[in-house]
Computed example of a mutant assay.
Amino acid sequence: MDIPVKALLLSAALCLPAQAEELALVLDRGIHATLELPQGPGPFPAVLMFHGLGSSRDEVGLIFADTARQMSRQGIASLRIDFRGFGKSDGDTGAHTIERQNDDAQIALRALSAQDGIDPARIGAMGFSFGAGAAIELAAARPDAIRSLVVWAPVGDYRADMLDSMGPRVFDLAAQDGIVGVDLGWRTMALQADFFDSLARHDLLAALARYSGPFMTVNGSDDPYRRYTPALMAAAAGVDKRALVIQGGDHVFHVYIPSRSMAGQVIEATVRRFRDTLPAGD
């Protein structure tokens, strides 16, 4: 059962969890989320998790859900959300824009920072593919709050990526008709012209240049998005920046092929990174 975030905060104030716990929340504007709390009273470091375009909070192959559980075992809490219009969250999928995605990320940050048992001075962010852009822009907007940033198979240029993957005809049809159906490969969805217009309003490299905290990007060696890695590494303003390549991995680290899945490697590296940059102990 989904629990309104205000009610959750009140109950948490009375009794913090004595064991690892997964809680369903409904945040502002009908955003559905999962809060993963480690065992013990805290306060815990915590990580915000942002899914890719067309996906939802547990991500492909449940890789976000598995990452959240592994972080919890290491004393790191997490909050993963469904962007509005995706998963269980309210809103029209077709009305998705970069601005709305960034607003949702800000709402998630406020909710997590206010949660009892969470140390607001030790919050990180991570994003997968298109959702990596949300993590980057949140870190740029709130460098005071985001202390570590990890991106998986990240987009590096919203408009260039959509042009490359969808072709200019989709942009033209959206401009002509106001809405267009797009095939993402694993699902189809309708997107309004506002989505395509919003792509050019956001420069991810300029955003990353405003964030000086620890940064790590993770790609499979066969991921076409790996082409963004040099530019992202050059743009990152901090000294502690790393690029990890998972040999033989594709864009989703072969999570749909259990015998070839590299999810374990990605999760282990990510948990280790947050453990080192958001230490669980005082």
Rank of each mutant, 00 (worst) to 15 (best):
I3S: 04
P4G: 09
S11H: 05
S11W: 07
S11D: 11
A20E: 13
E21S: 14
E22P: 06
L25D: 07
V26T: 15
D28Y: 14
R29Y: 15
G30N: 11
H32K: 15
L37G: 03
Q39P: 10
Q39M: 08
P41D: 12
P45R: 04
P45H: 09
A46D: 06
L48A: 00
S56L: 08
E59Y: 05
V60M: 15
L62C: 11
D66N: 13
R69M: 08
S72C: 10
S72P: 05
Q74P: 11
S78Y: 05
I81F: 11
F83Q: 15
G87I: 07
K88C: 13
G91N: 12
G94E: 12
D104W: 02
A108S: 15
R122V: 08
R122K: 09
I123R: 02
I123A: 02
G124S: 01
M126K: 01
M126H: 00
F128G: 06
E137C: 05
L138S: 02
A139M: 00
A140V: 08
A140N: 08
A140P: 06
R142W: 02
D144E: 01
D144Q: 00
L149V: 02
W152T: 11
A153C: 12
V155R: 00
G156C: 03
R159S: 05
A160R: 04
A160Y: 06
D161T: 13
D161P: 01
L163D: 00
D164Y: 01
M166A: 13
V170Y: 02
L173V: 13
A174G: 07
G178L: 10
G178P: 09
D183E: 07
D183N: 15
G185M: 08
G185I: 05
R187W: 03
R187P: 06
T188P: 13
A193F: 09
A193L: 10
F196M: 07
S198L: 04
L199F: 02
A200Q: 02
A200G: 14
R201G: 12
H202N: 09
D203G: 12
L204F: 06
L205A: 11
A207D: 09
L208S: 12
Y211V: 06
S212I: 03
P214Y: 06
G220M: 07
G220S: 11
P224N: 01
R227Q: 07
Y228Q: 07
T229V: 10
A231F: 07
A231I: 11
A234T: 15
A234H: 13
A236Y: 02
A237P: 01
V239L: 11
L244K: 00
V245N: 03
Q247I: 14
D250R: 12
H251L: 00
V252N: 10
H254V: 15
I257S: 14
R260W: 13
V271N: 10
D276R: 07
D282E: 10
